[in-house]
């Protein structure tokens, strides 16, 4: 088993799962019914993507080889049970989650949730565009299916960034705060982890494209990027399982049932 590849798939799954989980907290609490429905849709799409990645990772991890068992153990999981999407989501502890730090940041107000979605969707779109050509046909297929959904997430979140940035003085200020809060979590997207060495993606090219596109929307929204945006100190560690304090609580909630009732089927 190619451990780098599996770790990369887990990274893709974790990122979409954690963002889905965060967005899903808005369900029933959105600012207006239509947008409550829209964000729940995005949450459902991301959850579906996470499940695709986990199911594929599980398939690869069920090989009966010693190196595979060692790898499973290195993720703090039991080697005597069949790996499934749920084992991967519910039986891994915080130091073995590889999601982007951006996705685990608190929902904050609606503006921060929108901006988090926009920054990620813009990145996800460009990334998955490349992943569609990944030599692993399964990753390529998941990326090709997901990018259709991402296109919608991107359009929706871009429109909302513009609307809120160029809305009232209050909404403008809230969006500017959201940019300042979340910007330090964006650098990590373009810093390849060890397991990304084989992914054959030009991360600096990806970063330039992303930055251009984000700058254009931010400008249309009459907002501004942090001063010297390229020099802002960036938080890293998510891809290596070193997270912010938020992830522990997110997983506590997510994994509660499986922890409280080990071995039960639902």
């Amino acid at each position: 088993m190619n451990t780098s590849l599996v770790k990369y798939i887990l990274h893709l799954g974790d990122t979409t799962l954690i963002l889905a989980q965060q967005n899903s907290k808005w369900c029933g609490h959105g600012p207006v019914l239509e947008q409550d429905i829209a964000l729940t849709n995005i949450s459902l799409d991301l959850l579906g993507q996470a499940r695709n990645f986990y199911q594929y990772a599980a398939e690869l991890m069920n090989e009966n080889e010693k190196s595979t068992k060692d790898f499973i153990q290195s993720l703090g999981m039991q080697t005597d049970e069949k790996i499934t999407e749920d084992i991967l989501a519910y039986h891994r502890k915080e130091r073995f989650f590889f999601n982007l730090l951006l996705t685990e940041q608190p929902n904050g107000d609606w503006g921060q949730t929108i901006l988090r979605q926009f920054l990620y969707s813009r990145f996800q779109y460009y990334l998955y565009e490349k992943l569609q050509e990944h030599p692993d046909t399964q990753i390529a297929a998941i990326a090709a299916k997901s990018i259709k959904e991402t296109t919608y997430h991107l359009r929706w979140s871009s429109e909302w960034v513009i609307r809120l940035g160029d809305g009232t003085a209050e909404s403008h200020e809230r969006m500017q705060n959201a940019i300042d809060n979340l910007w330090p979590y964006t650098g990590e997207m373009f810093l390849p982890a060890d397991f990304e060495a084989d992914v054959k993606i030009d991360f600096s090219g990806l970063k330039n494209k992303w930055l251009d596109a984000v700058t254009s929307i931010v400008k249309q929204a009459t907002l501004s990027l942090p001063e010297n945006e390229n020099k802002v100190y960036m938080h890293t560690g998510g891809k290596e399982g070193r997270h912010t304090e938020h992830l522990g609580y997110i997983l506590t909630e997510l994994q509660y049932m499986q922890m409280a009732f080990p071995g039960a089927n639902w």
């Binding site: 207006v32 609606w110 513009i162 609307r163 809120l164 009232t168 209050e170």
Partner: peptide, 13 residues
Amino acid sequence: EEGQWVREAAMAF
């Protein structure tokens, strides 16, 4: 109440 500013911003925009 927490969505008030969002709805106002959408109208203003």
